[in-house]
Structure formats: C-alpha cells, structure tokens
C-alpha cells in the first residue's frame, strides 16, 4: 500500500491512499502516474519535475518593487508566493494593468499546481520497506527528543515519534514534528537518503 503524507503545518494531517491522484507539486501533474505505478521508480525520476523556483516566479512579476503587496521587493514576494504566505491577488498591478495580462496568465499556469497542493508530500511504500529502522534512527528530530531510545538505535521511548516501525514496516505517526514543516522549514532528507530500497520518498524527487 502506498501512502502520501501530509506535509504542511497549517493543514490537517491526512493520509491518502494512492488510489486518488497525487498532489501535484511540480509543473507537471503526477496524476498520470497513478494508473502506472511502475513509473514511480525514483532512479528514473520520470514525470517528477523539479519544484517551482522563486526566480521563475520573479521573472513573470512586474519587477517594479512598487511595495503595494506589502513586501519590499518583487523577489521577496515571489518567495512568499511559493511558501503560500502571499496570494497572487496581493500583487494588484498585475491584475489592474493590461500590459501584464500575458504574464498573469503564465503565472497562473505556473502556480496552478501550487494552489491545488496545500501540502508537500512524503510517500511511504510499505511494500518496499524491510523495517530496518534506518530512517527512525537517523532522524535528527528523533535524536534530539529521544536520545536514549531512537537516537541510540533502539525503538522509540516517546509516545509520538515521526516515524515508527510497526508490524515490520515504517509507519508515520506524528508528521507535524518533521523539520520539513513549519514556516522556517528545512528541506531535510535524512530518512530518504538512508533508505536503500526507496520505500521513503518525497514528492519533489
């Protein structure tokens, strides 16, 4: 069974079984992969495009630094747009001035997957997991919160770890604690890096 895990702090924790389309995070939708799960092979990275960069967004903004959105520069507005702290509508010149119409259309297209996806995603493929516990032990949050348990290689001694081995496979328990969530999130990939069978993956690749 494949599970997509919720990713954003502001959103409610939810588990989705992959019978529904995946949250699209890159420019290309991932929904076409649902019917062909074999394409989810990470080594080939088919269909998994890179996430949207602030620079791409900035190039399509007015670049006038008019501060009408409340930000000092258009670049910082682009950053906040991607972090979903600002909305495209906050940039009023883009909607009011006709010369930006083309750019607006392109921007809306570029940001479309971002607006649909309120979350970034962690995918756990239980079929590939052997329960080695590498992800549980390497997790820096686990090491900090439970140094005598998970930090030292044993099972968790705290009630709500992020990941836990249950019935021989990895299960996600408390996603909110992960360093990838929150305003100042860190794109940590420690668990994925130490999973040689690719049972743990992130949507961005």
């Amino acid at each position: 069974m494949k599970i997509i895990l919720p990713p954003h702090p502001t959103s409610i924790i939810q588990l989705l079984i992959i019978s529904k389309p995946l949250f699209p995070i890159g420019r290309g939708s991932l929904s076409h992969l649902v019917n062909r799960p074999e394409e989810l092979n990470i080594s080939e990275n088919k269909g998994l495009e890179m996430p949207i960069t602030p620079m791409e967004v900035y190039k399509l903004l007015p670049k006038t630094n008019c501060k009408k959105c409340g930000e000092q520069t258009c670049m910082s507005f682009a950053f906040k747009l991607i972090n979903r702290e600002k909305k495209l509508e906050d940039c009023t010149p883009l909607f009011e001035e006709k010369k930006y119409a083309g750019q607006l259309k392109e921007l809306q297209k570029l940001l479309e997957p971002l607006q649909e996806a309120t979350e970034t995603g962690l995918i756990v493929d239980e079929d590939l997991c052997v329960g080695c516990g590498n992800c549980v032990v390497v997790c820096p949050v686990h090491a900090a919160e439970d140094p005598k348990g998970m930090g030292s290689g044993f099972g968790p001694t705290i009630e709500d770890p992020i990941l836990r081995i249950e019935d021989g496979v990895v299960k996600v328990i408390e996603m909110m604690k992960c360093r990838r969530y929150g305003k100042n999130r860190v794109l940590c990939v420690a668990c994925r890096e130490n999973c040689p069978s690719d049972a743990i993956r992130f949507l961005e690749g």
Binding site: C132, I165, E166
Partner: peptide
C-alpha cells in the same frame, strides 16, 4: 531486545522478526 507487543501489533521488529510474532 526491544520488541514491544501492544494490541496485537508488533513494534520495532523488522519485517522478518515481526512475522515470527505475527
């Protein structure tokens, strides 16, 4: 030495070990 069994669920054991308990 740290296998926990709770409500017929097996915690911390790998796939091989948990199948013995299961």
């Amino acid at each position: 030495p740290d296998i926990v069994i709770k409500d017929s669920k097996i915690f911390n054991a790998c796939r091989k070990g948990s199948s013995i308990f299961k």
